[in-house]
Design a binder for these strands. Structure first.
Lengths: 272, 272
DNA sequence: CATTGATAACAGTGGAGGATGTTAAGATAC
DNA sequence: GTATCTTAACATCCTCCACTGTTATCAATG
């Protein structure tokens, strides 16, 4: 009866091609739709559909005849692209996070793809209480027998697939968790940042309600900033990054008394 | 882009056969597994799997060599069986409920299969706010563009697939809905009942927070009772039943000033 | 101990839905 | 106005997964 709690990943050929298209566009700067159709040996219609998808994700910008890399900042596009493909790193970080969980604990998870990876691994940590506002985590954990699930209510935000707002914060404030796993979109050497006000308020509330606060960050998010400051890094009891983090950045963090853990990427993820 | 929000109904052959098996067992009282395999022309293994499923639903009881109808009370088994098959009635009731919804409203839905049917129909009522504690409704409505979704948090109960408890009630109390659609497991001529304390508390909170309270009841639930009293029927602004309701029962309700609506079952549901 | 029933494990099958291509209609640049 | 690009709509194909059957092992009855 050991079910798999992995996500239902869409067929690879499509995602693969989109990744390659993104890579190509980011490298070349700009390219025509028909060129891409030629290059990847698919119809023009399929290229258009891929480009629509990539544009929706903010990786490229369409114009009549083709696409270009998001002009506002090539760096950001690059980040956006990398975000979609740091799966192995996130899995490694999640594995490390999993070791911090003991049966009987109350675990709080915020809405991020990294904490979702953690959720997939909680199956055999029962008995456990999981608290979250992330619908994808809710769907996953609700299928796990032996895990008590507490949903934080609130208004549903389709862009994050999670519940936010005042009702959510009030729900958080009446709970206490043993450990919080949270992620964010950028960290500087001193602070964690996020671009959305609503999310920042919820994450802060979660931090107030958790005994141990763990920040999960893949290395593509290091050395950046975003609009809103979330918290100083020293407010977290642990910061888990993957092995791709530059050693000087890690050293700088440790110099500032940040408790950094390095999660090495499993070189052979198939042999589970 | 008009997607269907119907449920992913499992292939009919299986459900059909299970219904027929349930029917047969309830009629005969007891039957051997090999008889059933013969009768329905499937393998013994399949019969066992069906019987496991039916036992899980509390419809039959397995013993070595076969199954019998749940001996504790044939009546209840019968109810359990009917509950699974009043789909057409529930759909008709949901259609009627749908006519009470206007764009712009805040609609509250509790956790019941009947209100889930209502949720399926809300797609084209946008803009709309939907408030619910039922995970299946959350999954459905979160896919509907233009509908604002507010999740009531709380502890997840796998048996109901919904969120209950104090956090849920507190969330309800800080909201106000224009209309509440609720269902329950049994109604007498005077009151609505439910067998579980937790559910009753949540439903009562919902009733306090809704301007208009609508009770949705298929006729198999009429003239019964359950452990806990939920509310007098006159507390509801409307009670919607399907056309299968006995006319004397309907008359009795109306004599007691209950505002009963009859939802006729669509004789040709395919021609939508 | 023998016989029958129950379950576990693996393989085959069919159907549903997603992805792609084709065609035609609509939009936009020149 | 024309040519080119884009999108909508439909048909087709393919893949995944739930369902079923078969076989083999395990449990229970007598």
């Amino acid at each position: 009866m050991a079910r798999s709690f992995e996500p239902a990943v869409s067929r690879n050929s499509r995602g693969d091609r989109q990744n390659k298209i993104a890579e190509y566009v980011l490298r070349e700067g700009s390219v025509s739709a028909s060129q891409l159709a030629d290059l990847f040996d698919v119809s023009l219609m399929t290229v258009h559909r891929d480009l629509d998808e990539l544009e929706r994700q903010g990786v490229v910008r369409k114009f009549r005849g083709g696409v270009s890399a998001q002009p506002s900042s090539v760096f950001e596009s690059n980040v956006a692209y990398r975000l979609r493909s740091a799966q192995a790193e996130k899995a490694a970080i999640a594995q490390h996070a999993r070791t911090l969980v003991e049966p009987g604990m109350a675990v709080m998870l915020d809405d991020s793809t990294t904490t979702l990876q953690v959720a997939y691994l909680l199956d055999d940590a029962a008995p456990l209480t999981v608290i979250t506002n992330f619908l994808e985590v809710i769907k996953t954990v609700s299928q796990m027998p032996g895990i008590r699930l507490i949903s934080l209510g609130g208004e549903y935000y389709p862009t994050h697939d999670s519940f936010l707002g005042v009702p959510c914060i009030e729900a958080i404030e009446s709970l206490r968790a043993d450990v919080l796993f949270t992620s964010t979109s950028a960290v500087s050497p001193t602070h964690a940042f996020h671009q959305e006000q609503e999310i920042v308020l919820v994450k802060r509330a979660m931090m107030r309600s958790a005994a141990r606060k763990v920040l999960l960050i893949d290395h593509t998010k290091l050395s950046g900033t975003a609009l809103h400051q979330l918290a100083p890094l020293t407010d977290f009891d642990d910061v888990v990054v993957d092995g791709g983090a530059p050693s000087d950045v890690v050293r700088a963090l440790r110099d500032r008394r940040v408790n950094v853990h390095i999660a090495e990427v499993d070189p052979n993820p198939a042999a589970g």
